[in-house]
């Protein structure tokens, strides 16, 4: 399988001049196409920082992040904006939809920024909303949707543009059990159908139980990297 992300000697140090804290410490990992990976670990273990580094939202102090043979660690900020837009999908803990746009407009938004043709955008956005079970909510704004429904729209938005991989930072943290299971079923299905690499940071055992690969971080370093046959 093709390697989508590769990190080499990845380090992120905060407050380096006063009291250095290594949020990510010498992480060497590879993520293959279509993997369904959970990054786990206690609070402060560096999960979010690691996701930010591989998502191009933060720059490493040392080491490299290579995505599809491109080293993003040395990219300029403007290049990173463009790179994120074209290659990475994001799902956030608090859904973070655009409140003034409808569900279908939210799902289309990334494709719109990519200047995709209108017909293609609309077709794909509706298709994605159907896949996440919200075909009856396409013209509804986020404030009229439940938390679980909003997160499903966020997932549809992240996957609609067919990115190289999707990063999800604690996507089920704000959801009740039923909504969380529902979301995980959808993400698992899309992971298989669309063959998109999904990487989660999570505390949630429900997510961990679904993952086919679980990476445990402790003090910023990889303490375990396990594969499960599911």
């Amino acid at each position: 399988m093709k390697t989508v992300i590769k990190t080499t000697n990845l380090e992120k140090v905060y407050n380096s001049s006063v009291a250095p804290v290594k949020a990510v410490n010498q992480v060497n990992l590879e993520f293959k196409e279509g993997e369904f990976t959970a990054i786990v670990g206690p609070s402060g273990s560096g999960k979010t920082t690691f996701l930010n580094l591989i998502g191009g939202l933060d720059k490493p102090t040392r080491g490299n992040v290579i995505i599809d043979d491109t080293d993003i660690s040395s990219m300029k900020e403007s290049q990173l904006f463009d790179f994120r837009l074209k290659h990475i999908g994001f799902v956030f803990q608090a859904y973070n939809l655009i409140p003034v746009l409808t569900a279908v407009e939210n799902v289309s938004f990334v494709m719109l920024l990519q200047n995709r043709p209108k017909e293609e955008m609309e077709k794909r956005a509706k298709e994605m909303l159907e896949q996440v079970g919200l075909s009856d909510k396409i013209n509804v704004r986020p404030n009229k949707l439940s938390g679980g429904q909003q997160q499903r729209v966020a997932v549809a938005r992240a996957l609609a543009s067919k990115p190289d991989f999707v990063l999800a930072d604690e996507p089920t943290a704000n959801l009740d059990t039923e909504s969380a299971f529902n979301l995980l079923d959808i993400m698992s299905k899309l992971n298989k159908e669309e063959n998109i690499t999904l990487i989660f940071s999570t505390h949630d055992q429900r997510v961990i139980d679904r993952a086919r690969r679980v990476i445990t971080l402790v003090d910023g370093a990889v303490s375990k990297d396990e594969y499960f046959d599911k």
């Binding site: 463009d82 994120r84 608090a94 973070n96 409140p99 938005r157």
Partner: peptide, 14 residues
């Protein structure tokens, strides 16, 4: 702030 952060994260340039 959160929404603007999201917009910039998903690739809406400055």
């Amino acid at each position: 702030v959160k929404e603007l952060g999201m917009l910039m994260s998903i690739g809406m340039n400055k």
